[in-house]
Protein backbone atom coordinates (compact mmCIF):
# COMPACT_ATOMS: atom_id res chain seq x y z
CA UNK A 1 0.00 0.00 0.00
CA UNK A 2 1.33 3.37 -0.88
CA UNK A 3 1.34 6.25 1.50
CA UNK A 4 1.77 9.90 1.12
CA UNK A 5 5.02 9.90 2.96
CA UNK A 6 5.86 13.54 3.40
CA UNK A 7 3.55 16.51 3.29
CA UNK A 8 4.66 19.59 1.34
CA UNK A 9 4.84 21.85 4.42
CA UNK A 10 7.24 19.52 6.09
CA UNK A 11 9.32 19.26 2.91
CA UNK A 12 9.72 23.03 2.92
CA UNK A 13 11.04 22.91 6.42
CA UNK A 14 13.47 20.23 5.41
CA UNK A 15 15.05 22.55 2.83
CA UNK A 16 16.78 24.41 5.59
CA UNK A 17 18.57 21.29 6.70
CA UNK A 18 21.63 19.62 5.36
CA UNK A 19 23.22 16.34 6.07
CA UNK A 20 26.18 16.20 8.38
CA UNK A 21 28.93 13.79 7.96
CA UNK A 22 31.63 12.95 10.39
CA UNK A 23 33.95 12.28 7.50
CA UNK A 24 35.05 14.28 4.47
CA UNK A 25 34.66 12.27 1.36
CA UNK A 26 36.31 12.90 -2.04
CA UNK A 27 33.46 13.41 -4.39
CA UNK A 28 33.48 13.46 -8.17
CA UNK A 29 31.19 16.35 -8.80
CA UNK A 30 31.46 19.74 -7.31
CA UNK A 31 28.88 20.36 -4.75
CA UNK A 32 28.20 22.40 -1.70
CA UNK A 33 30.36 20.24 0.50
CA UNK A 34 33.97 20.25 1.42
CA UNK A 35 35.96 17.75 -0.38
CA UNK A 36 39.34 16.20 0.13
CA UNK A 37 40.00 17.62 -3.33
CA UNK A 38 41.25 21.15 -3.62
CA UNK A 39 38.58 23.03 -5.44
CA UNK A 40 37.35 26.44 -6.19
CA UNK A 41 35.27 27.27 -3.27
CA UNK A 42 35.81 30.52 -1.37
CA UNK A 43 37.71 28.71 1.39
CA UNK A 44 41.50 28.95 0.86
CA UNK A 45 43.40 25.78 1.17
CA UNK A 46 47.01 26.12 -0.13
CA UNK A 47 49.36 27.36 -2.88
CA UNK A 48 51.14 25.55 -5.62
CA UNK A 49 53.39 26.53 -8.51
CA UNK A 50 51.79 27.71 -11.69
CA UNK A 51 51.82 25.20 -14.46
CA UNK A 52 50.92 25.67 -18.05
CA UNK A 53 47.26 25.50 -18.66
CA UNK A 54 46.28 26.64 -15.20
CA UNK A 55 43.48 29.14 -14.95
CA UNK A 56 45.11 32.55 -14.74
CA UNK A 57 42.34 33.78 -12.50
CA UNK A 58 43.67 31.68 -9.59
CA UNK A 59 47.20 33.15 -9.75
CA UNK A 60 47.95 35.04 -6.54
CA UNK A 61 49.20 38.21 -7.89
CA UNK A 62 50.10 39.62 -4.54
CA UNK A 63 52.59 36.81 -3.99
CA UNK A 64 53.92 37.33 -7.48
CA UNK A 65 54.43 41.06 -6.71
CA UNK A 66 56.22 40.25 -3.53
CA UNK A 67 58.17 37.18 -4.36
CA UNK A 68 57.99 37.25 -8.18
CA UNK A 69 56.79 33.70 -8.17
CA UNK A 70 53.64 32.48 -9.93
CA UNK A 71 51.67 30.67 -7.38
CA UNK A 72 48.25 29.33 -7.85
CA UNK A 73 45.79 29.74 -4.97
CA UNK A 74 44.18 26.45 -4.00
CA UNK A 75 40.70 26.50 -2.46
CA UNK A 76 38.74 23.78 -0.60
CA UNK A 77 36.74 21.96 -3.18
CA UNK A 78 33.01 21.69 -2.42
CA UNK A 79 31.82 18.32 -3.68
CA UNK A 80 28.68 16.23 -3.45
CA UNK A 81 28.15 13.66 -0.67
CA UNK A 82 26.72 10.16 -1.23
CA UNK A 83 23.98 9.15 1.15
CA UNK A 84 23.14 5.50 1.14
CA UNK A 85 19.85 4.78 2.77
CA UNK A 86 19.38 1.12 3.63
CA UNK A 87 15.89 0.24 4.78
CA UNK A 88 14.97 -2.98 6.51
CA UNK A 89 11.93 -4.31 4.68
CA UNK A 90 11.71 -7.64 6.44
CA UNK A 91 8.33 -8.79 7.64
CA UNK A 92 9.08 -7.79 11.19
CA UNK A 93 8.92 -4.16 10.08
CA UNK A 94 5.23 -4.57 9.46
CA UNK A 95 4.40 -6.31 12.68
CA UNK A 96 2.24 -5.87 14.67
CA UNK A 97 1.17 -3.24 12.15
CA UNK A 98 2.88 -1.29 9.36
CA UNK A 99 3.45 1.80 11.52
CA UNK A 100 7.09 0.93 11.98
CA UNK A 101 7.66 0.45 8.29
CA UNK A 102 5.96 3.72 7.40
CA UNK A 103 7.97 5.49 10.02
CA UNK A 104 11.14 4.07 8.53
CA UNK A 105 10.03 5.11 5.05
CA UNK A 106 9.36 8.63 6.25
CA UNK A 107 12.81 8.88 7.72
CA UNK A 108 14.30 7.62 4.49
CA UNK A 109 12.25 10.08 2.43
CA UNK A 110 13.12 13.00 4.67
CA UNK A 111 16.81 12.26 4.66
CA UNK A 112 16.69 11.76 0.86
CA UNK A 113 15.14 15.13 0.41
CA UNK A 114 17.60 16.86 2.72
CA UNK A 115 20.52 15.32 0.88
CA UNK A 116 19.21 15.95 -2.59
CA UNK A 117 18.38 19.55 -1.69
CA UNK A 118 22.08 19.92 -0.81
CA UNK A 119 23.11 18.51 -4.15
CA UNK A 120 24.21 15.26 -2.56
CA UNK A 121 23.79 11.89 -4.10
CA UNK A 122 21.20 9.60 -2.64
CA UNK A 123 20.96 5.88 -3.20
CA UNK A 124 18.32 3.70 -1.62
CA UNK A 125 18.52 0.01 -0.86
CA UNK A 126 16.25 -2.34 0.94
CA UNK A 127 17.14 -5.58 2.61
CA UNK A 128 15.54 -8.50 4.20
CA UNK A 129 17.27 -11.84 3.71
CA UNK A 130 19.13 -10.25 0.83
CA UNK A 131 20.01 -6.82 -0.34
CA UNK A 132 18.04 -5.06 -3.01
CA UNK A 133 19.82 -2.01 -4.37
CA UNK A 134 17.05 -0.39 -6.24
CA UNK A 135 17.96 3.25 -6.45
CA UNK A 136 21.58 3.85 -7.31
CA UNK A 137 23.12 7.03 -5.93
CA UNK A 138 22.19 10.02 -7.92
CA UNK A 139 21.65 13.72 -7.45
CA UNK A 140 19.25 16.37 -8.38
CA UNK A 141 15.83 17.25 -7.17
CA UNK A 142 14.24 15.10 -9.79
CA UNK A 143 15.91 12.17 -8.24
CA UNK A 144 13.85 12.75 -5.17
CA UNK A 145 10.75 11.55 -6.98
CA UNK A 146 12.53 8.39 -8.00
CA UNK A 147 13.50 7.86 -4.40
CA UNK A 148 10.07 8.59 -3.03
CA UNK A 149 8.47 6.42 -5.61
CA UNK A 150 10.69 3.56 -4.63
CA UNK A 151 10.21 4.16 -0.93
CA UNK A 152 6.49 4.26 -1.28
CA UNK A 153 6.35 1.14 -3.37
CA UNK A 154 8.57 -0.82 -1.02
CA UNK A 155 6.85 -3.82 0.53
CA UNK A 156 7.79 -6.06 3.40
CA UNK A 157 9.12 -9.48 2.61
CA UNK A 158 11.29 -12.19 4.16
CA UNK A 159 13.42 -12.35 7.24
CA UNK A 160 16.15 -10.16 8.57
CA UNK A 161 19.81 -10.65 7.81
CA UNK A 162 21.62 -7.38 8.56
CA UNK A 163 25.18 -8.67 8.35
CA UNK A 164 24.65 -10.36 5.02
CA UNK A 165 22.96 -7.30 3.58
CA UNK A 166 25.71 -4.95 4.70
CA UNK A 167 28.47 -7.18 3.36
CA UNK A 168 26.74 -7.25 0.01
CA UNK A 169 26.21 -3.53 0.13
CA UNK A 170 29.87 -2.86 0.78
CA UNK A 171 30.82 -5.01 -2.15
CA UNK A 172 28.50 -3.17 -4.54
CA UNK A 173 29.07 0.39 -3.36
CA UNK A 174 32.73 1.06 -3.91
CA UNK A 175 32.48 4.72 -3.19
CA UNK A 176 32.33 5.55 0.47
CA UNK A 177 29.63 7.83 1.78
CA UNK A 178 27.18 8.21 4.54
CA UNK A 179 25.19 5.10 5.30
CA UNK A 180 21.88 5.42 7.03
CA UNK A 181 20.64 2.05 8.13
CA UNK A 182 17.00 2.01 9.22
CA UNK A 183 15.94 -1.20 10.91
CA UNK A 184 14.33 -2.70 13.97
CA UNK A 185 17.51 -4.74 14.47
CA UNK A 186 15.51 -7.86 15.31
CA UNK A 187 18.10 -10.16 13.90
CA UNK A 188 19.16 -13.15 15.96
CA UNK A 189 22.41 -13.31 13.98
CA UNK A 190 23.33 -9.82 15.07
CA UNK A 191 24.56 -6.75 13.24
CA UNK A 192 28.05 -6.17 14.57
CA UNK A 193 30.13 -7.64 11.80
CA UNK A 194 28.10 -5.93 9.08
CA UNK A 195 28.39 -2.51 10.65
CA UNK A 196 32.09 -3.02 11.36
CA UNK A 197 32.70 -4.04 7.78
CA UNK A 198 31.03 -0.87 6.51
CA UNK A 199 33.29 1.19 8.70
CA UNK A 200 36.24 -0.71 7.44
CA UNK A 201 35.16 0.27 3.97
CA UNK A 202 35.24 3.91 5.06
CA UNK A 203 31.55 4.48 5.21
CA UNK A 204 30.16 6.92 7.69
CA UNK A 205 27.66 4.63 9.38
CA UNK A 206 24.51 5.92 11.02
CA UNK A 207 21.72 3.75 12.27
CA UNK A 208 18.14 4.41 13.15
CA UNK A 209 16.52 1.81 15.38
CA UNK A 210 12.82 1.91 14.66
CA UNK A 211 10.43 0.18 16.98
CA UNK A 212 6.83 0.17 17.90
CA UNK A 213 6.21 0.96 21.60
CA UNK A 214 3.98 -2.16 21.71
CA UNK A 215 7.03 -4.23 21.01
CA UNK A 216 8.90 -2.58 23.84
CA UNK A 217 6.16 -2.67 26.40
CA UNK A 218 4.68 -6.13 25.66
CA UNK A 219 1.01 -5.38 26.07
CA UNK A 220 -0.09 -8.97 25.36
CA UNK A 221 -1.56 -11.00 28.21
CA UNK A 222 -2.80 -14.54 28.89
CA UNK A 223 -2.23 -17.92 27.30
CA UNK A 224 -0.76 -17.26 23.91
CA UNK A 225 0.76 -19.01 20.98
CA UNK A 226 3.28 -16.50 19.67
CA UNK A 227 4.38 -16.94 16.09
CA UNK A 228 7.41 -15.26 14.61
CA UNK A 229 6.24 -13.36 11.54
CA UNK A 230 9.45 -14.06 9.70
CA UNK A 231 10.23 -17.67 10.56
CA UNK A 232 6.75 -18.92 11.46
CA UNK A 233 8.26 -20.55 14.52
CA UNK A 234 6.01 -20.42 17.52
CA UNK A 235 6.12 -20.87 21.24
CA UNK A 236 3.32 -21.33 23.74
CA UNK A 237 3.54 -18.99 26.62
CA UNK A 238 1.44 -17.81 29.47
CA UNK A 239 2.19 -14.14 29.74
CA UNK A 240 2.31 -13.07 33.31
CA UNK A 241 3.40 -9.78 34.86
CA UNK A 242 6.75 -11.32 35.59
CA UNK A 243 7.16 -12.35 32.01
CA UNK A 244 6.16 -8.88 30.80
CA UNK A 245 8.80 -7.31 32.98
CA UNK A 246 11.40 -9.80 31.84
CA UNK A 247 10.58 -9.09 28.23
CA UNK A 248 10.74 -5.38 28.79
CA UNK A 249 14.17 -5.77 30.34
CA UNK A 250 15.28 -7.92 27.44
CA UNK A 251 14.17 -5.31 24.94
CA UNK A 252 16.01 -2.68 26.91
CA UNK A 253 19.09 -4.86 26.88
CA UNK A 254 18.91 -5.22 23.12
CA UNK A 255 18.75 -1.42 22.67
CA UNK A 256 21.50 -0.85 25.19
CA UNK A 257 23.76 -3.34 23.51
CA UNK A 258 23.16 -1.69 20.15
CA UNK A 259 23.80 1.73 21.58
CA UNK A 260 26.91 0.63 23.37
CA UNK A 261 28.26 -0.99 20.23
CA UNK A 262 27.60 2.17 18.23
CA UNK A 263 29.25 4.37 20.80
CA UNK A 264 32.27 2.18 20.86
CA UNK A 265 32.55 2.17 17.09
CA UNK A 266 31.71 5.84 16.55
CA UNK A 267 28.46 5.08 14.85
CA UNK A 268 25.61 7.46 15.25
CA UNK A 269 22.72 5.64 16.84
CA UNK A 270 19.25 7.04 16.76
CA UNK A 271 16.38 5.43 18.55
CA UNK A 272 13.06 6.06 16.84
CA UNK A 273 9.94 4.82 18.54
CA UNK A 274 7.00 5.24 16.22
CA UNK A 275 5.07 7.25 18.78
CA UNK A 276 7.75 9.91 18.61
CA UNK A 277 6.56 12.91 16.65
CA UNK A 278 8.13 12.53 13.26
CA UNK A 279 8.87 16.20 12.59
CA UNK A 280 10.49 16.46 15.99
CA UNK A 281 12.52 13.43 15.16
CA UNK A 282 13.96 15.01 12.02
CA UNK A 283 14.05 18.63 13.00
CA UNK A 284 15.17 18.20 16.57
CA UNK A 285 16.41 14.75 17.40
CA UNK A 286 18.45 14.33 14.23
CA UNK A 287 19.92 17.74 14.82
CA UNK A 288 20.79 16.89 18.40
CA UNK A 289 22.40 13.73 17.18
CA UNK A 290 24.25 15.79 14.57
CA UNK A 291 22.87 13.87 11.68
CA UNK A 292 21.62 17.05 10.10
CA UNK A 293 22.30 20.74 10.54
CA UNK A 294 20.37 23.85 9.72
Amino acid sequence: MKHKILDPGFIKRLERLSLLSKKIFAGKVQSLRRSTHKGNSAEFADYRSYELGDDLRYIDWNIYARLEKLLIKLFVAEEELSLYIIIDNSKSMCCPDDEKFIYAKKIAAALSYISLANLDRVGISAFSNKLDVHVMPSRGRKHFFTCVHYIESMEEDGGTSINKALFEFAKIMKRPGVVLLISDFFDPEGYESGLSFLQYKKFDVNIVQVFNPIERDMTLQGDLRLTDVETNEFIDVTVTEKLTKMYHDEFGALSSELEAFCMKRGITHLSAPTDYHFEDLILKYFKVKKMVKS
Binding site: F186, D223, L226, E230, L254
Partner: peptide, 18 residues
Protein backbone atom coordinates in the same frame (compact mmCIF):
# COMPACT_ATOMS: atom_id res chain seq x y z
CA UNK B 1 -6.98 -28.56 26.27
CA UNK B 2 -5.78 -25.02 26.58
CA UNK B 3 -7.08 -22.88 23.78
CA UNK B 4 -4.27 -20.45 23.23
CA UNK B 5 -4.80 -17.21 21.54
CA UNK B 6 -2.67 -17.04 18.44
CA UNK B 7 -0.57 -13.94 18.06
CA UNK B 8 1.92 -13.06 15.38
CA UNK B 9 4.82 -11.02 16.66
CA UNK B 10 7.75 -9.33 15.00
CA UNK B 11 10.34 -11.50 16.64
CA UNK B 12 10.78 -14.49 18.86
CA UNK B 13 14.45 -14.12 19.33
CA UNK B 14 13.97 -11.87 22.30
CA UNK B 15 11.92 -14.62 23.91
CA UNK B 16 14.58 -17.10 23.04
CA UNK B 17 17.29 -14.86 24.49
CA UNK B 18 15.15 -14.54 27.57
Amino acid sequence: KLKRQKKVISNLFLFNRM
